[in-house]
Design a protein around this nucleic acid. Structure first.
Lengths: 212, 212
DNA sequence: TAGCGTTCGTGTATGAGTGACACTAACACC
DNA sequence: GGTGTTAGTGTCACTCATACACGAACGCTA
């Protein structure tokens, strides 16, 4: 008989952006989220970070707590609680996944056991929501990026095409972007200007018009 | 030496609206949030509900998970994790608090131990944020209400005065309100029309214009 | 019953922001 | 120098947000 004294665990939904949104799954054959019990004396955030480095080499990613589930909700039959996190990393940072882990496009990930499907859906919803009022999209890009790259991230997450001129106008008037002065040549066409975040180390909340 | 095997607990921030936003604290003298360990085989939501009914008679309130803290973050010295919730109830529903619990205006609540201050602040932030894009404010009102009452709730939570006409226009065009046809006489002045939510049993999310 | 005090309920004009839309600029390559 | 490809730019129409003032409906009282 399982009781709530079971050691709590954390699960991490790690997203990256490779043309489309992808999620990291582990466990070859029986795919699931990176997952593990919290160690003695370990903080929750620290645990999530540890689990992350166990799957990819990089741990310096955006990491945020998502939701806490009990066994009954996840359908695992009443075992201990699971504190879930989601993490975002640019593709060039995550490198090659460890051992038996793999990237799956969100749209064609396999069915996951133990309610992990639900956790992924929850993380995906959060990501879409935060896209609209924070600078979270930049977590998928390197320090310097072009506006076309940024727009591609927005389009991939929101799953809808955006108007180029309106997108640029909105972002440029948000005061979060700074032109670096650098340009990127790529292919035989006009080079793109490079931008960076004014405050690269934080996910800023955009002032959303409080209706009066 | 405490380890993470310590039984998880839940804490609940219960708000009500009595002219101003108030929060329920327990423990006379050494005030803190309603709080307790999760029982064997008990779900997290169920635990939060149980803790709520232990402080007030009513358990049929809006209840939502807030965040999960570890002991180190709360400053309790590394004991088990705390899954926090917040709850909202109209004043006429909560009745007289049990035993040694009391309502405190959010602005003059005492200092709370064990990081409970932080939990209250977190809940308050969430509440303010959700005010803008959900129908959460209605959880503080009875089924039928006047627009003036609703406006008072919005003003109390957002802590800023709202223009009466703009407020009414916005709410009435949101398609969430239905005029009941009833009126309320109160004092020697023109009676107010009564409204109710179109879907009273759910907190609806308002479509927030996704910028394109 | 006429007047007063109080809250309820309503419209408009102005400015800001959003959405739709098409062409020139700059480069690499041939 | 011509071609192919992506980068970068402006305007107009419309919707939405904001600011703002007065008549309506009632209870009370003189």
């Amino acid at each position: 008989m399982s009781d709530t004294n079971t050691r709590p665990a954390t699960a991490v939904v790690l997203f990256t952006m490779d043309r489309v949104l992808k999620v990291l799954l582990v466990g070859g054959g029986r795919w699931r989220l990176p997952f593990g019990p919290v160690a003695d004396g370990e903080g929750l955030d620290a645990c999530a970070k540890r689990i992350l480095t166990d799957s990819i080499r990089q741990s310096d990613t955006y990491l945020e707590q998502l939701y806490t589930f009990d066994g009954a909700t996840l359908g695992t039959g009443g075992a201990g609680i699971v504190v879930t996190y989601y993490a975002l990393a640019p593709l060039d940072k995550v490198g090659i996944p460890h051992r038996d882990s793999r990237w799956f496009a969100l749209t064609d990930a396999p069915l996951l056991p133990d309610g992990h499907d639900r956790i992924v859906a929850c993380a995906s919803d959060r990501l879409v929501a935060k896209l609209a009022y924070t600078t979270i999209a930049h977590q998928f890009l390197p320090d310097q990026f072009t506006l076309a790259e940024l727009q591609a991230v927005y389009e991939a997450i929101s799953q809808q095409p955006l108007d180029k001129r309106n997108f640029r106008r909105r972002l440029q008037s948000s005061a979060h972007l700074v032109e670096t002065g650098g340009i990127r040549r790529e292919g035989r066409h006009r080079p793109a200007r490079l931008y960076r975040l004014r405050q690269p180390d934080q996910v800023a909340t955009l002032k959303q018009g409080t209706p009066k």
